[in-house]
């Protein structure tokens, strides 16, 4: 996901970016006003991503992922809205203004969720994030899980493809009617699960041999620059998030 660029946003402390993204997300979802999420996306997230020189990348991914959502939510909510003002009437179809409005409001939230998430994942090196999280007190076991998962997924994908090929070569039909395809499931899923469970023991010995259970503080080769201003800013976001949520709930009551 990470896109290397020389920008001020890239140089910020990873936690500053994570907390900013979370704060924007919560603000967009909880603050009153139907169009707040659009305002936050357009006025804050997009300009920030332009500052980080990743605006085109962000827009591209948001476009690809939100398109099916957009089509689905617009069709379903406008066509099946129930009582309301029709936009037009054609045969059985009478999309409602209120439904379309609701769909657009939902779409705004979806776009905000995606773009605030992308804002930090496009501009933050995963290893820098890991080190920052560890320094902030996250257990090294959680860091191990995240890093290892990202490393092994590509090899598991290749493994899955090979298993599919191997079983098809043994005459397993994977095309045809639903029942035929459903029957292919077990011979494909079981080798993947069994083969990888057999590796667990070896991997466990390997990480124990590298002093994984040591309780000494780790040192890191990568320095993550931080400033007092960013530290203060992060404290503000941490206070702001629960306040935003409480405010959002009280407003709606």
């Amino acid at each position: 996901m990470y896109v290397a660029r020389a920008s001020g946003l890239h140089q910020l402390h990873p936690l500053t970016k994570v907390l900013t993204a979370l704060c924007l997300l919560i603000a967009g979802l909880t603050l009153p006003g139907n169009w707040t999420s659009y305002c936050i996306t357009l006025l804050i997230v997009f300009p920030l991503s332009a500052w980080g020189k990743v605006f085109p990348n962000l827009l591209h991914i948001v476009w690809i992922v939100s398109l099916p959502f957009a089509i689905s939510v617009l069709l379903i909510q406008s066509l099946f809205w129930g009582a309301g003002t029709p936009i037009f009437e054609f045969w059985l179809f009478a999309p409602k203004v209120e439904g379309a409005r609701y769909a657009l409001i939902s779409l705004g939230k979806i776009i905000l969720v995606m773009s605030s998430f992308l804002l930090f994942s496009l501009t933050t090196r995963p290893d820098a994030l890991m080190i920052a999280l560890k320094q902030a007190g996250m257990p090294s076991s959680i860091a191990y899980i995240i890093v290892t998962t990202l490393q092994i997924v590509p090899s598991f994908q290749r493994k899955g493809a090979t298993i599919l090929d191997a079983q098809r070569s043994r005459g397993l039909e994977t095309e045809g009617n639903l029942w035929v395809r459903a029957r292919a499931l077990v011979p494909i899923v079981l080798p993947l699960a069994l083969g990888s469970l057999m590796e667990v023991e070896e991997r466990a010995i390997a990480i124990e041999a590298r002093a994984f259970n040591s309780h000494k503080a780790e040192t890191s080769l990568i320095e993550i620059p931080d400033t007092q201003f960013q530290k203060n800013f992060r404290t503000v976001t941490l206070v702001a998030m629960p306040l935003l949520m409480i405010f959002g709930i009280l407003w709606r009551l």
Partner: peptide
Amino acid sequence: VAKLASRVGYVFQNPDEQLF
């Protein structure tokens, strides 16, 4: 592939990627 399997058998490199 499943039909061709009646004419061509293929032994893959890694047995763990098919045993179940």
